[in-house]
């Protein structure tokens, strides 16, 4: 004798003392939630601005009337720095950051070190062995003396010099694109922080919060969940 989904769900719920909320009931609750359009617009604007889509942010302002929570002009500068690091022009990036606000690097020794380290990596990538050696010893080594962690990083980086073919090198991953991206996102975050703006957009944290809230609610109730964030489709509870 087959049982209906609801019957099975109820039996399951009784056994685990979980409250069962049917799809109809849950949809009523969803309908009772009113999300303001302005709030969604703000979220989207915050995403565009934080991720640095300056032109899209401008268009969005004119299409929706939503004001960005940061001066759009500063995004262009920030993105220029980011792009410079991403394409390996670290010296240029450092100069641009200092033009923006010299305090950013002054107050952030770790970021400054990582930028210098990236600069060293780029020199090695370009086969400038002598220049790289000189730069490592004169610019980076003194910083390593101040900080044990920096010294380790420096030692790790110069190992690259010992291998002609980086694919055989144990620290070859430093030459990967991902290392540039890592450094670029660190600078990006520091600039945002210096502009008293959050370094991450709010949307991803809300999505994480949704997963967290669903997991928490799972302990006490069976209800339709959203498992695929991209489609936002409601799925009936698993029993």
């Amino acid at each position: 004798m087959p049982f209906s989904f609801l019957e099975v769900a109820q039996v399951y719920a009784m056994a685990s003392s979980k409250k069962v909320i049917t799809r109809d009931e849950w949809e009523k609750r969803l309908d009772d939630v009113k999300i303001r359009k302005e709030d969604m617009d703000k979220l989207v604007m915050n995403f565009l601005v934080t991720e640095g889509y300056v032109e899209a942010a401008e268009k969005f302002r004119s299409e929706t009337g939503t004001e960005p929570d940061i001066d759009l002009a500063t995004i262009t500068d920030r993105m220029a720095v980011k792009k410079a690091v991403q394409s390996g022009n670290v010296e240029d990036a450092i100069e641009k950051v200092n033009d923006l606000n010299p305090e950013i690097l002054d107050t952030n020794p770790q970021l400054f070190f990582h930028l210098q380290q990236q600069r060293l990596i780029e020199l090695i990538r370009n086969g400038k062995v002598e220049e790289a050696l000189e730069f490592a010893q004169e610019e980076l080594a003194p910083r390593g003396e101040e900080n044990k962690h920096f010294l380790e990083e420096l030692e790790k980086t110069v190992v690259l010099l010992a291998f002609e073919d980086a694919t055989n090198c144990p620290v070859g991953e430093l030459l990967d694109m991902s290392q540039r991206l890592k450094t670029a996102s660190e600078v990006n975050a520091a600039i945002l922080t210096s502009q008293s703006h959050e370094k991450d957009p709010k949307l991803p944290s809300l999505l994480k919060m949704l997963i967290w809230a669903q997991n928490k609610l799972d302990e006490k109730a069976a209800y339709p969940r959203i498992n695929n964030l991209s489609t936002a489709a409601l799925e009936d509870p698993l029993v």
Binding site: R29, A213, L217, S230
Partner: peptide
Amino acid sequence: HSRLEQLLRQLSACFLEKRSL
């Protein structure tokens, strides 16, 4: 409802339900 709105509604509904329990 846009997908964004559907997600935000689900988020609010989960918090409301959690609190009501």
